[in-house]
C-alpha cells in the first residue's frame, strides 16, 4: 500500500550511482588518467604488480572494516601482522613445529591479540583508540623480543603465500577469497549485522538485546585474524619475517576503509568500498612511481587524496540528509 508514494525509479539513476560510488568513480578516472599519461600503466605485469601491492593492505583493511563499522578503531593491525608472521616463522623454524601449523599459529596469534584489544575496550572500558594504541606498542615489542630484532626465515612454511598459482600470484587469490568471506560475514551473519547496530547506536542495540560487548570483542578478533593473514602474505613474499614488517600499515588500512565510504562514527561501511579504497591508494602509488615522482612527494599526494576523498564523502552525506 505504501510503496505507491515513492515507486522505485525505473532504469539507471546516474546521479544516485555517482553519489553512492564516489570512490569507484574516482578510481576509474584515476586509471583513465594514468592510461593516457603513461603506456606502462595498462600492462599485464603492472596490473599484477598493483594486485600484489594492494593485497596486504586490502586484507588488513577488510578486518578493519568490521571494527570501524562497530564505531571502533584498530591501530594495532600493523604490529599484529608482524607478530603473527614472526610467530608462525618462529614456530616452524626455531621451535621445529611442522610446516602445516605455520598458518594456524599465525592466525591464532592474530585472534588472541585482537581478543585482548577487544576485551580491554569492551570489559575494561578503554576507548578502542587507546586500547589498540597500547597493543600497537606491546605487540611490536613482543615481535622484537621473539626475533631479537633480526629477521627470521619463513623456510618453506608460508613462502607459498607469495608464489604464483599458474599465471596469478597467490596474494591476489587470497585477496579475493578473503574479500568474499569478509563481505559474507559482514552482511549475512547475525554477528556482522550486530556490528552495524552497535556502531550505529550502541544503546539502542543494547536495549534490543544485542550482546554489545561480545560484538565488540568479536570485531577485534576478526580484525586480528585478517591482520595475521596479511602479515603472513607479506612474509611469504619476502621469504622472511622482518621485525619491522607492516610498520605503519594501520594508517593505510584505516585510510582504505574511510576512502571506501565507511564512517568513523560507525554504522556504515562496505567491504567492496574498502577494496576500492585500497585500490585507490595502490594505483596512486603505482602511477606516481611510473611517472617517476619522488617518494617524498608521493606522501604529500597520498595525504591530499585522503583528505579530498573523505571531504567529498562528507559533502555528499550532508546533501543526502538536508
Amino acid at each position: 500500500m505504501s510503496s505507491v508514494a515513492t515507486a522505485p525509479k525505473k532504469g539507471f539513476d546516474f546521479k544516485a550511482f555517482l553519489a553512492n560510488n564516489g570512490a569507484l568513480v574516482g578510481l576509474v578516472i584515476l586509471c583513465l588518467a594514468l592510461f593516457i599519461a603513461t603506456p606502462r600503466f595498462l600492462t599485464g605485469p603492472n596490473l599484477l604488480n598493483i594486485g600484489i601491492q594492494v593485497s596486504t593492505i586490502a586484507v588488513m583493511a577488510f578486518g578493519m572494516t568490521f571494527v570501524i563499522v562497530a564505531a571502533g578503531i584498530d591501530l594495532s593491525v600493523g604490529s599484529v601482522a608482524a607478530l603473527s608472521a614472526m610467530g608462525s616463522s618462529y614456530a616452524v623454524t626455531t621451535a621445529g613445529l611442522p610446516d602445516a601449523l605455520a598458518i594456524p599459529v599465525g592466525l591464532a596469534i592474530g585472534a588472541l591479540s585482537g581478543w585482548v584489544t577487544g576485551a580491554m575496550s569492551a570489559y575494561g572500558k578503554l576507548p578502542t583508540f587507546i586500547a589498540s594504541l597500547a597493543m600497537l606498542t606491546v605487540v611490536r615489542g613482543l615481535t622484537l623480543v621473539i626475533s631479537d630484532g633480526r629477521p627470521i626465515s619463513t623456510g618453506s612454511s608460508v613462502s607459498w603465500l607469495g608464489d604464483d598459482l599458474g599465471p596469478i600470484p597467490m596474494p591476489i587469490i587470497i585477496l579475493m577469497l578473503s574479500g568474499l568471506l569478509a563481505a559474507f560475514v559482514l552482511n549475512r551473519t547475525v554477528m556482522g549485522k550486530n556490528a552495524f547496530a552497535v556502531g550505529g547506536n550502541t544503546e539502542a542495540a543494547r536495549l534490543s538485546g544485542i550482546p554489545v560487548k561480545r560484538v565488540l570483542v568479536t570485531v577485534f578478533v576478526i580484525s586480528g585474524l585478517f591482520a595475521a593473514l596479511s602479515g603472513m602474505i607479506l612474509a611469504g613474499r619476502l621469504d622472511s619475517a622482518q621485525p619491522t614488517l607492516a610498520s605503519g600499515y594501520e594508517l593505510d588500512a584505516i585510510a582504505a576503509v574511510v576512502i571506501g565510504g565507511a564512517s568513523l562514527s560507525g554504522g556504515v561501511g562496505r567491504i567492496s568500498g574498502t577494496l576500492i579504497g585500497a585500490l585507490v591508494l595502490a594505483v596512486i602509488r603505482n602511477g606516481l612511481n611510473l611517472l617517476s615522482v619522488s617518494a617524498f612527494w608521493q606522501q604529500v599526494v597520498i595525504g591530499a587524496v585522503i583528505a579530498i576523498a573523505v571531504g567529498f564523502d562528507v559533502l555528499r552525506r550532508k546533501n543526502v540528509k538536508h
Binding site: 552495524f196 547496530a197 550505529g200 547506536n201 544503546e203 539502542a204 542495540a205 536495549l207 564512517s263 554504522g267 556504515v268
Partner: peptide
Amino acid sequence: KTQGLVLDA
C-alpha cells in the same frame, strides 16, 4: 533517537 533506533539503518 538515542536509545530506540539505529538511525542509519
